[in-house]
Design a binder for these strands. Sequence first.
DNA 1: CTCCATATTGTCCTTCAGGACAATATCAAT
DNA 2: ATTGATATTGTCCTGAAGGACAATATGGAG
Lengths: 217, 217
Amino acid sequence: MRDLFISPRNNLLENWATAFEHASIYASLAEVKVAKNEPCLFWLHVDANSQQWLSTNVAQILAGYGNSRVIVLANVPEQAEAGFALGAGALGYCHAYSEAAVLQEVKAVVSHGGIWLGQDFLHYLIGVTRQLITAQPNAVADALGLLTPREREVAQQASIGLSNKEIARKLDITERTVKAHLSASFERLGVKDRLQLALVLNDKTLNDKTLERQSLP
Amino acid sequence: MRDLFISPRNNLLENWATAFEHASIYASLAEVKVAKNEPCLFWLHVDANSQQWLSTNVAQILAGYGNSRVIVLANVPEQAEAGFALGAGALGYCHAYSEAAVLQEVKAVVSHGGIWLGQDFLHYLIGVTRQLITAQPNAVADALGLLTPREREVAQQASIGLSNKEIARKLDITERTVKAHLSASFERLGVKDRLQLALVLNDKTLNDKTLERQSLP
DNA sequence: CTCCATATTGTCCTTCAGGACAATATCAAT
DNA sequence: ATTGATATTGTCCTGAAGGACAATATGGAG
């Protein structure tokens, strides 16, 4: 698989040349001359704050060169940019000055269908995602588990912004009954009103402020 | 770096043996006999729904064998489990029946300080994360942009559950003024009360139900 | 200078929320 | 058969929320 480096500087960094003996260098995508269907590895070298340039180029490569893959080389790797690059369809994102051995490894992974990322970005991704798919649902699930089935129904309706009267109509019970279930829910969850209930049931935000308030008289 | 496979089945799968000639197999972590400080690669083979077993083992390995790394092999790779494994400290998560060549690649990446994941999981991670770091903040930012600076302050206080009186004390203004800013905020954001305001400003939930309600008289 | 957006505060009024007392019916477990 | 948890509903009361009228001060744009 041929290696095509695209860099505004139009010259191969030393590590690139060391890693891939037969690498080509281009100043821009427009100058690239390879068969459309030849499987190539495009190494896109981006400066900071070139997200527009980046997404345009990635998109063009993926559209124009069907069998090719894109790896983004960043002078200053940054999480947001990595997310951007990967979101645009790149299969790798790494430091432009990585050792030759690392670049070869990146190529190995990507050319075999993998995606290559640095540890920093991955840990960031994982941390954020776990918060989303693990911590949060569990926190909410825990909270919901403290309620009886009927209380849960009522509480969830209140949490999306319905008034007692609306909930009553919807569940075909009296407004008084709605109040009863809500009062019980407040008690069980240790919150003082429907807004705090909504905060607990909608997201994780048992934040400091909320807890602090809950413990007050 | 030695390869230690830990599998409840207590025998090496063919692809494992092919990939690593000198691999060892153990039925459980307790039976492993290697020097505590020898750098090893632990391949944890998990069945579905063994998250407890998984996290316990990963934690024990990382605690007990300082120079070692953990890769999780799943019979049925699943996103939630991958997140769990990586969150617990594993550096790789892949299909237990991957080709020998892939396993060798995984080892290369991990032993060089990388993290190895399948494309599916990564795309999932990236998708979720982009949603989080791009879409959501913008939605909230858009909403906040509709408010004047002072209204914004007041609205945010209300969104975390403070009463008008509390906000008044905190910002050193009259309760009446708080009401004025809040009423203006409701108007501008098209919500009917502080709970819906909280839903808009705290999270994503410009969900159907909320919007539907907002458009009603 | 005038107009407009913003920030501040006032009073009066209506409605809603939530607590304080309740009571009654059902169903499962002991 | 009794007990306990759950679900339902009632009345009375207080306090908070939010709208309907406001007025006044400030500071920038035109």
